[in-house]
Amino acid sequence: MRSFEDLDQLVGAVPFGVVADLRTVDAGRGSQALHRLTLPELLEALTDHARTASLEASSAMDGVVVRDRTRAAQILAGHTADLRDRDEQELAGYGAALDRLDEERGPRPDVDVVLDLHRLLFRFTPTPGGRLRQVESVVAGPAPDGARVKRFTPVPVAATPAHLDELVARYRRALGAGRHHPVLLVGLFALDLLAIHPFAAGNGRVARMLTNALLQDAGYDVTRYVPVEPAMAGSPERYSAALLDSTHDWHLSRHDPWPWLRYLVRALADATTQLGALTSSARRAGSKQGRVRDHVLRHARPRFRISEVRAGLPDVSDQTIRLVLAQLRTEGLIEADGVGRSATWSRRA
């Protein structure tokens, strides 16, 4: 809530480094429609991997780890009948919460959605989820000597519902106004949600789930294909320091959001660059004829047009594309559906 009280003053002047990273993220957003058209199977494979990597890394950041990878894969595939311990229960709940987000249709964020995500997160545990914090608490973390020290104090229990309602309302108004970059607004929403700290446990996972969902709602799908949570889990000190630096004096509305926003935008820019490298590699592997063959058999839609292959391989001539299509048809791997410019091609099972 606090970050949305005076956005022009808080984020009106964007640091140069953040501007440069936002340009990278925006450029990646502009390429996503082309990737979906020309490399659908690659994106599908990346989506499957990203979901698992995001879920496992985000869980590990909260101390939830299932070390048996085969077992973890079974749980994430929906096998939840014989969960053995608390870590497996919470991993299964995280998967259920992500499924809920994928199915959700309607305005986000929404307080009911936030509560439902938390309920699902703890669905398989003895601890009931979906309830706001009932006792006063502090957020603590490790000191260099290993001791636990106070990091910050969340808003009082009695004020939590009002803060949560106002955060959702102000975020929606700010996004609708269109005065500030949507990625920055998503980052501020996550920052304020963590500062409010509405739940006794699971706040980080709920905030990270919603961050990805709100980015995708705003048209930034990069985390659907390249997750940022593994990088966050790999440098937990930097992640925690960015958040703590930005929550200092949050209660007084005198906090500095840029340590956190700089960290988040840089993570998204790195993910965007990585996605660009993956898609470029898929297009450029091998000779031109080999690239066309690979594109048609592995990355194109099951039914595609020559124009889609051309868009995915802009440096390959139509003559080469048609030559490879003819070869693949002779091999019985594809077939033509019609003739002329409107014809489509289909991969054969």
Rank of each mutant, 00 (worst) to 15 (best):
D294M: 09
S253P: 02
S317V: 08
L117T: 01
A73E: 11
A20S: 15
A159N: 10
V111R: 06
R108A: 10
R29S: 08
A207N: 00
T344A: 12
Q134I: 09
E104T: 09
R283M: 02
E88Y: 06
L43P: 03
R347P: 00
F304W: 07
R172A: 08
L34K: 05
A213N: 03
R284H: 14
Y171G: 02
E56P: 07
T38A: 15
D249F: 13
A45H: 13
L184C: 05
R291M: 03
A218I: 09
E136A: 12
D62C: 10
L193N: 00
L115A: 12
T247Q: 14
V135P: 08
A140L: 12
E308F: 00
S253I: 04
R329Y: 04
R310N: 08
Y263W: 07
G93F: 03
D221H: 11
A57V: 08
R133W: 02
F189Y: 04
V114L: 14
S54Q: 09
S137K: 14
T273K: 13
R238D: 10
P15W: 11
P109W: 04
S307W: 02
R172G: 09
R347Y: 01
D337V: 14
H79R: 07
S3N: 03
S342C: 11
L46M: 14
D337A: 11
P109V: 05
R108G: 08
